[in-house]
Amino acid sequence: MIREEGKLVERISLRSDRDVARARRVVTQAMDKLGARALGRTRFVTAVSEIARNAVVHGQGGDISVFSHDRSKQVSVICEDGGPGIEDIDTALQDGFTTGRGLGRGLGGAQRLCDVFEIESTPDTGVTIRMAVNI
């Protein structure tokens, strides 16, 4: 669970693969500031990369906000896209499921790499994913 209100580090508009790279850098820096170790950083930043790319490729773009929770030593992100949403979230989280040309490991894989992973989807507002890592 996310243990305290975080402070916003940066909000990144997700339009292209450069923005996905930017999201990776911002999360890496936020984790470094809290003293994250290499494995923890690689796992969470990989998850962020999957989710941010999904927003660009499948979600018609969106934005991602990065938060630092300094007292409870957590970093979290909220990623919102403007796409059509996910029809069946449970199926989408299964390995091997894909609607596109991908491997279908992104979403379920990202979930395994985080300490907190919450996903909401509605046809009106697209997909919102909240993820956090304990440092």
């Binding site: 494995l39 690689t42 796992r43 390995d95 490991r105």
Partner: peptide, 12 residues
């Protein structure tokens, strides 16, 4: 090593 471990977790 961290990349190898993460790839295994991703099932890649």
């Amino acid at each position: 090593p961290a990349v190898a471990m993460t790839l295994v977790e991703l099932g890649m």
